[in-house]
Write a protein that binds this DNA or RNA. Structure first.
Lengths: 250, 250
DNA sequence: TAGAACTGTGTATCACTTACACAAAATAGT
DNA sequence: ACTATTTTGTGTAAGTGATACACAGTTCTA
């Protein structure tokens, strides 16, 4: 019953040796994946079904199973392919903080392009070519910053996680806003109002204080609110990394 | 078609006034939610179905819909209830870093108790009582550290995201390990081996170097590997916060 | 050139969410 | 007390979706 991890890797890396007998395949994994991504981009993960993908391609549902062992595996490959193309820097690292900031913005942009990637479950470390490319892209500047070994892995995973989660909330809100047909300001005002109603000062004193100060009130730059949240956190991590490396050297 | 956000909140807060006519309900929302949590705890989110919950309770599937508008809403409430009970500190904050560390460990423990919470989609900011309790618990020490307003929100969300994502990977691995019947060391060794095979030094130079140094090799403390990853990141954030506050004051 | 291996298809099964209508139960207003 | 109204739990059924399996046609290998 357990899945062969080898097959997973092979699927992600396209490393399956093609058989010599039998009819030539009329489809390719990448075609299927690209179609899946297109459907998910346009209508979300819920609209993604094997039947839907097959119909788009003009084949029967079951034909897809000659290329993909299950829908879950398909989504896994989609996630990897969607993650292709992190910002690329070459040569010597001259501004590691700038590179990480660009990396974070790039990740954010990737999620904006493929918001369904935030709906999919992620329960394994990066392993496909697309995921590894992002990992690599963050390692470069962080290595230059002075981190080594496990510190690097830790920091990259930490940043990946934070960006993903914040993007999930941001785009999730955006989507429900779109469905409800309200503006970002209205949405934030709604959240603010709910907090004002339920953030009981007895039970949630710090929160109530924060709400009272208007910290959740709609700002002028609505669309960027969560984005700004992200920036602050990233800056703190980078500050922390800098201090850590300095302390070790000093 | 759009969902009434009001109803969502009411469901989360149990704020629906009970009607006076009609038969007395034989079930309660909390009973249903608790059953759902039990099923999900034991067998994962995939095993959670309305039919399953109903059967456990000895009622028909459709009876649940008198208490919950849809399965998605049920899961939303489950997520909130599962999140109840962050570590509680009272009185003056004497060690804000220690409180945050305890908070992170508590969050980690919560996810260990309810790993299905990592499989569910989160696309909205914290709003139920359980989620807000965690928010509050982090605000307390961070406020004492010297952060204010949006900085607080940002930092808490950032930490929430990072912990969630790292827990997702850690427990996801743990689960596939359990299914495959292999040890943590074997699993890590497998990951290491895959990276050695696919981390081409031309394409992923920093990663290849890291792999070559054995950064992904199984450590003695297998079970804690990701946990340690998390600690490092958290420490950097806290360092960064400290530096930020100091700089502003200075 | 025969046999083996592989492809795409058609059919079918099973599980799941949820709409709808009904009968029994409980209350409100007379 | 009585009746109309509201609400509950149930039964039935529709609709969607993943995927197992067997078959017929296709392309190699020996």
């Amino acid at each position: 019953m357990a899945e062969d991890p080898r097959k997973r890797i092979e699927l992600l890396w396209g490393a399956s040796g093609r058989p010599s007998r039998g009819p030539k395949p009329k489809l390719t994994l990448e075609e299927i994946v690209a179609t899946g991504i297109r459907v998910a981009d346009e209508e979300g993960l819920d609209a993604l079904s094997m039947q839907r993908v097959a119909k788009e391609l003009g084949f029967t549902t079951m034909s897809l199973y000659r290329y993909v062992p299950s829908k879950d595996r398909l989504v896994e490959v989609m996630l990897d392919r969607a993650a292709d193309g992190p910002p690329v820097f070459t040569g010597e690292v001259v501004d590691w903080r700038g590179e990480i900031e660009a990396w974070v913005r790039g990740l954010w942009a990737m999620y904006r392009l493929h918001p369904w990637a935030l709906e999919a479950r992620v329960s394994a470390p990066p392993i496909g070519p697309g995921q590894l490319a992002w990992f690599e892209a963050a390692l470069r500047p962080l290595t230059h910053a002075g981190l080594t070994g496990g510190e690097l892995i830790s920091t990259v995973m930490f940043l990946l996680g934070a960006v993903r989660e914040l993007a999930g909330i941001s785009f999730g809100l955006e989507q429900s806003r779109a469905r409800a047909g309200i503006s970002a300001a209205e949405s934030e005002a709604g959240y603010d109002a709910v907090l004002r109603e339920f953030a009981d000062p007895g039970r949630f004193p710090s929160l109530a204080k924060l709400v009272g100060e208007g910290a959740f009130a709609p700002s002028g730059l609505d669309d960027e609110a969560v984005d700004l949240d992200l920036d602050f956190g990233v800056q703190r991590v980078l500050d922390g990394v800098e201090a850590y490396v300095a302390a070790r050297r000093g």
